[in-house]
Design a protein around this nucleic acid. Sequence first.
RNA 1: GGCCCCCUGGUGGAAUAGGUAGACGCGAUGGACUCAAAAUCCAUUGUCUGAUGAGGACGUGUCGGUUCGAGUCCGACGGGGGCCACCA
Length: 805
Amino acid sequence: MLPMSYDFINIEKKWASYWVDNATFYCDTHDFSKPKYYILDMFPYPSAQGLHVGHPEGYTATDILARMKRMQGYNVLHPMGWDAFGLPAEQFAIKKNEHPEKFTRANIANFKKQIQALGFSYDWSKELATVDPSYYKWTQWIFLQMFKHDLAYCANIPVNYCPELGTVLANEEVIDGKSERGGFPVIRMPMRQWMLKITAYADKLDRDLVKLDWPKSTLEMQKNWIGRSEGVAITFKIKNSEASFEVFTTRVDTLFGCTYCCLAPEHPLVEKLVSSKQKEAVEAYVKEATTKSDLTRTSTNKDKTGVYLGVEAINPINGKEIPVYVADYVLGSYGSGAVMAVPAHDERDYAFAKKHGLPIVQVLEGDISEQAMVEDGKHINSEFADGLNIAEAKVAITKKLVEINAGKRVVNYKLRDWVFSRQRYWGEPIPVLEKEDGTFLPVDESQLPVVLPNMDEYKPGKAGRPPLEEAPSSWLNVTLPDGSAAKRETNTMPQWAGSCWYYIRYIDPKNDNALCDEALLKHWLPVDLYVGGSEHAVLHLLYARFWHKFLYDIGVVNCDEPFQKLYHQGMILGENGEKMSKSRGNVVNPDDIILSHGADSLRLFEMFAGPLNEVKPWSTNGLDGAKRFIERVYRFVDEPSVNAKLSEDNDGKLDYAYNFMVKKVTSDYDDLAFNTAISAMMVFINECYKADKVYLPYFEGFVKCFSCVCPFVGEEMWARLGHKEILAYQSWPTYDESKLVLAKVKITVSVNGKMRDVLEVSKDATQEEVQAMAFKSNKVSPFLEGKEIKKIIYVPGRILNIVVA
RNA sequence: GGCCCCCUGGUGGAAUAGGUAGACGCGAUGGACUCAAAAUCCAUUGUCUGAUGAGGACGUGUCGGUUCGAGUCCGACGGGGGCCACCA
């Protein structure tokens, strides 16, 4: 085999270890002399499979920015860590009969090796793992602050429990009331869970979305998830009773059309209100409805079931008596768990009324013979609101309700409190003690961290019993200073806990006295750019905002949003355009690519394939093309005699190409438009080949730009050009705007919008001069002959359009 | 069902503010180099038509609109993707 000129294997090995050994990318967070730039990747969950080709995509994007910003003189914080608690590790550990800790540490080591082989400029001195007690000490500390501010509480809430499997299942794991695995029956039953009161922040989380430089789709998703909705709460009194219930509606204007009311099966008044005659039927219905999972209840949404309670309510606006039903199309967990039904103008109520033979009273003009009329229109049958449109009627009827003390404006949210406990082993212990009287006592801050005890048996227990119930008594049982006994909380935190604040810890990861030094926090937050997948749009990204806002409110951080700019990388599909998966056999392993083409080629290919935020297929040919371009560049320093020579003299031929390239690359990098930046670099190299030689400073400027995408070969070329200093802290190339102003500009001449000729004119040519040339052009004149010129539009430097009749 | 996004050559994708559609790459074809091949370098490459030329017509999912001019703006439809899904 011939010797390889572009020996990427050795080049990459050499510089990977050089950068690590010399801590090249160490960031002194105490150095405030330079402007800061905090650029963050969503840290990975270190799975057993190792990196997939999706990881390098986002990581390369941030790395390009980090490298450019360093050269632009910023103090760049670019850290990496491990989101290592969670179910997959635990399940895998159970399967392999190996402790999750051991298994997780091995995965982390493997991930780190793979990431370093890809040449990312992380500052490894900031490395952290959510499973480190020194880290989760502060996760627990934040939990304690929430507990102290009444944002963490314990409650009995209904969950999906499968007696056969002896475990709780997520909604997604329940299909038609049976477990996805095995098809065993699943019941709804209340279980004691820790909750975080994220709903207390619903308003702030919604309101502050406008401050963020985030993808529109993600903002939209969060907005919908929070689901703010303004409406009116109306009190309905029960006939012949002191009792009443409240409904929430966004369509108070239709109140005159309300012909019945519905309570959710979970509504506490159902059993109190039900008449003796209906008691049996209602109880049977409620029992069935409440043991169904949410998924079952919503999957059968075509059929609107319900049972009459045997009582009437009074519509406060007109005093009419209307029947009260219990129906499972009403959700117990939204609004007040009760609705006023207006069949004429609500599709669900329409379906229910038709099925149960309930009256339909139309209060807006329109056709309701086939379906409910939900559009805007003129009100009828609504007394004082007749003739008004929806908005006007809402105002009028709300005013009336307020006057008679039967209603008030309210805001509702879809957002629910966050179920924060898991009956699992591999998570952060919740730092709370339960006293013998059943009250909770937060662990004293001086006692943190509450370290997860080492256990041989960490499988989930029966009936949803947490594995920590079997922890050694020395861990489980605590004697309080007053001599009384208490027991540790045995639920653990969910996987999302550790990722809620890791961006804070990176700034000061070894601090033992605080989650982060205050002055450093002030200087470094918020994160300037955060890149990661969009799948976390309403999970991690919402949870982290919630925690951050809480920390802001208690004075720990001094900005109210954690991530100023957010960007999502698109998924990389298999070569066949389908999602990569083992079963499809189209998985590409980065380790293989590093061996066959090199990490630089992988990085270049992934950045060139298309816009960062779009879904892109893998392409072996594209990867070859990336490597070919690197070789075309590398040839300048490797075999300069062939086609490409470096020159000490500037003949001016490349002035435009070079300055254009630097300008384009600089702005495209900032916009995360890497595909077009790379294209600009290719154009420059093509020009160099055409010119046969390159002015050396131009080539060096190019190497700086190029090294952000391909750092290994960039560093190698820089060294081969005779530089002793590393590339990382060289100054970023500048461009000369005057070289970009061409003496001649091209003007498109069109007739009736149809392009006919392109004229080269002096950049200061007047319209008259251009017009004169255009009329003389034999490509243009035939189209003007015998025609009347109606109009001439001239855009300097761009186009001359002659309009003829 | 609701909301949001997308649709450009054989192919991945370019195209500030509406102003030469198809940059750059891949693939393909031809040439140079070579005993030959690979690699490399150079050239051509939207479709139809014209003669292999000059040229012409058409062309950004479909139909319509606004405009001197539309891939870009507006409306309807078709296709694909994402998120939420009885939220009153």
